[in-house]
Design a protein around this nucleic acid. Sequence first.
DNA 1: GTAGTATGCTTAACGGCGTTAAGTGAATTC
DNA 2: GAATTCACTTAACGCCGTTAAGCATACTAC
Lengths: 203, 203
Amino acid sequence: MGLKERRERQKESLRQEILDAARDLFVNEGYENVSMRRIAEKIEYSPTTIYLYFQDKSELLFNICEETFARLSNRLEEITKEGDDPIYCLKRGLHAYVEFGLQYPNHYKVTFLNHPTQSVDKERYLQEGAMGMNAYNHLRLGVERCVEANLFRETNIDLLSQSLWAAAHGVTAILITKCNFPWADKEKMISLVIDNLVEGLRA
Amino acid sequence: MGLKERRERQKESLRQEILDAARDLFVNEGYENVSMRRIAEKIEYSPTTIYLYFQDKSELLFNICEETFARLSNRLEEITKEGDDPIYCLKRGLHAYVEFGLQYPNHYKVTFLNHPTQSVDKERYLQEGAMGMNAYNHLRLGVERCVEANLFRETNIDLLSQSLWAAAHGVTAILITKCNFPWADKEKMISLVIDNLVEGLRA
DNA sequence: GTAGTATGCTTAACGGCGTTAAGTGAATTC
DNA sequence: GAATTCACTTAACGCCGTTAAGCATACTAC
């Protein structure tokens, strides 16, 4: 009687198909520019079918963000695991953060550039926060190691982490939202901000 | 025969009324959450009337952004006119930028945190660029003075200006959009980012 | 003074959107 | 073989930005 299981697998398969279609469209064309009808068309089902698998459009995005942020966390974890010079490690982590944002601008936009007023439901909002916190804690760990090794003048770990995050976010956000601005050199700019700030903090 | 003139004045007056209503709504509820019908309702005209004064919704936003940029430019101009120590001046300008954003968070959101400029018509795209350029040039001037006084290691003025802008934008944007985050110390964070970056650039 | 025109605004509509209510036909259960 | 469940669809609601067409009023020209 593996019948129920087969059906379960089939349902899961369609769920994944929807998610794949949504991710492809969101990432390539931007969340706002993709309609539920377009996603439905892509998977060759009626639009309402999507609502049998997901609560609404934003839940699609949420699931995709989750995947993507897990990937960011993994990337940051690898870097922190390497156990190199803490400051080098920290810089690498910040660079990875910016690169991640530029690689998935639509995910980044939704998670870090949205207005706090457009609140979804309570539970999902908290999950979203936890998702961000997870990534923040990797950064915090990198900073902690620098502070513990007495490499920094300033010793307030949260103040340091938040400042570095803010700076990295600034480069990421501005490159994403003002992608038509005649930037002198994006790569050099990223390095200038991150490296100067980290170096400037040395004891 | 001041008749034509009176009509001109009346037209201009309604145009301003539309702009005021749009600004108020955009700033309080966000561009995406405000419909043309809502703006029309506020001014007690039919929605189509707006289209007799503005090409489309994004042109409303464009005009509002222009105002905000102008206000920021004025503030920055005052600071650069003071002619103090170039580095002190630059820091003050950057601080003023962040303060401006925090003082008018909704204007800042509308102007700097909105859509990645999927430019509509050519002319407006160029104007939009020029608008940003005007504010940017004040910052650039401040940087230029530092470079000309041989105070900085890096001498690429645009690279420097853009990096500083990115960092200042980062602090501003993150404090605005993540206002519920448990920040260690907002003021110290602003100073840490700006001052460390500028100091870190010294020759 | 009246016919004709321009002006300023409105009503009605188009084609889209996210989402929901109601149904349908096949598979499963009893 | 009837009843029920399941996976999905069709039709619709009430929004949206935007456009076409119409309609009074004010102005112009004869």
